[in-house]
Amino acid sequence: MTTPFTLDGEQRKWCAELRTLAARQLRPLAGPEAPGRVNRPLVRALGELGLLARVLPSDGPVRAMDLCLLRASLAQECTEAETALALQGLGAYPVLRFGTGEQRSRWLPEVVAGRAVAAFALSEPGAGSDAAALELRAAPDPGGDGWRLTGEKCWISNAPGADLYTVFARTGPAPRAAGITAFLVPGDRPGLGGQPLEMLAPHALGTLTFDGVPVGAGDVVGEVGGGFRVAMNTLDLFRPSVGAFAVGMARAALGAALAHAGERRAFGGPLKDLQAVSHRLADMATRTEAAALLVHAAAAAYDAGEPGIARRSAMAKLFATETAQYVVDAAVQIHGARALQRGHLLEHLYREVRAPRIYEGATEVQRTIIAKELYRAADVYGGE
């Protein structure tokens, strides 16, 4: 069994260093929220500090455990830095894993250095949770040997300000997942446009419009018709780390609630002496610890190449994101009205924590994945 039930000393030390770095060097760069705008100074700092190189290593495979520890530690101190790091990884991992040598040499050094901003363009107005239903068309280019992309993407992180998009489009008549191809599309490609969206969660998000955007064989990531595999392989790696992001937010909220319960006096004593509050804090801590263990188990299984990665990833994302929602909400309740004031840590977390239950596969999608994997296992082992 490779699942770690505790982090070793080096891992704990690294996480502490990451939290200090995030608080002292990255949080000041977060600045005022600018919905729909990429924070390029923050992305550059992630590159200069070597953190993006841990997400997209040049000397070996991506380690899911490193990714999870990074995301949880940064999220505990600066959610903006965590999100910027994760989006660079999500957008560029298909190139690292499936790209050609030319694609990797052209783009990965720029992304890892924080000089180029990457994005993962899968979702569409009619294809969010049902990713195989996407309609962006890649029609054969009548004037050449490539394709022309026509259609729209929506709810794309880092759009429309990214330098590089991994775009998933339908290249053939095959239904559902079988007809999808992944393309590498530079942000300055003719015919590519978009608009920022103002969302509840304060990070860059927008739409992309494709008006006959030209792509060629050199832009294909992986194989023609193999794009859905590229997307799912990427999400299998990143789903546990979405859970890690959630664990980081839950830990931040729990820490704030514990401090407030010890300082705030009501009914003749500190809040922590009230059984209703102390029991709520105990539940918050227990659920957060359980979520962290599930995330670590999924990451360790991924790194060890164990079977059942889709199920483990889905379980980690499902439980951790639902737990974070509960913990942040409970922390707000313990604080009372002050937690709802603009600029309060919990007001910020309350807006941040909602989106992870939807993106990269909503909670209901994760339950469907888990159930399908359970049915498959039952068929293989005769229901035992």
Rank of each mutant, 00 (worst) to 15 (best):
168 F>I: 04
84 A>F: 04
185 V>F: 06
337 A>H: 10
146 G>K: 06
228 F>M: 11
296 H>K: 08
297 A>Y: 00
374 L>S: 11
95 V>E: 01
241 S>D: 07
364 E>H: 10
53 A>T: 09
237 L>K: 01
201 A>F: 10
160 P>T: 02
377 A>C: 09
173 P>L: 10
282 A>P: 00
113 A>T: 05
142 P>V: 07
81 A>L: 03
374 L>R: 12
62 V>T: 14
20 T>Y: 10
296 H>R: 15
185 V>E: 02
303 D>K: 01
223 E>D: 12
131 A>Q: 12
191 G>K: 00
280 R>H: 04
318 L>F: 15
358 I>C: 11
293 L>P: 07
262 G>N: 14
164 L>D: 06
7 L>D: 13
102 E>K: 13
139 A>V: 13
16 A>D: 14
379 D>G: 11
337 A>G: 00
341 Q>R: 12
78 C>L: 09
63 R>E: 14
275 Q>I: 13
239 R>A: 14
286 T>Q: 12
368 T>W: 11
107 W>Y: 12
175 P>T: 06
82 E>Y: 00
260 H>A: 13
5 F>C: 09
170 R>W: 07
147 W>Q: 02
152 E>H: 13
362 A>P: 08
169 A>S: 02
339 A>R: 01
150 T>S: 14
123 S>A: 15
176 R>H: 13
173 P>N: 13
39 N>D: 13
274 L>Q: 15
183 F>W: 05
84 A>I: 03
236 D>Y: 10
290 A>M: 11
176 R>W: 14
83 T>Q: 15
177 A>M: 10
119 A>T: 09
198 E>D: 13
316 A>F: 05
215 V>G: 05
158 N>F: 07
314 A>C: 06
187 G>V: 04
17 E>D: 15
211 D>G: 09
98 F>P: 03
96 L>G: 05
189 R>A: 15
16 A>K: 07
93 Y>C: 06
90 L>S: 11
352 E>F: 07
39 N>H: 10
277 V>Y: 03
318 L>T: 00
167 V>K: 03
159 A>Y: 04
147 W>L: 08
191 G>L: 04
262 G>H: 15
153 K>A: 08
104 R>F: 03
291 A>R: 00
5 F>E: 11
320 A>L: 06
158 N>P: 04
140 P>W: 09
308 G>L: 04
260 H>P: 06
54 R>P: 06
148 R>P: 05
176 R>T: 10
223 E>Q: 15
367 R>W: 09
284 M>T: 04
359 Y>M: 08
135 E>G: 10
157 S>E: 04
33 E>S: 12
254 L>I: 05
298 A>C: 04
54 R>D: 11
198 E>V: 12
163 D>P: 02
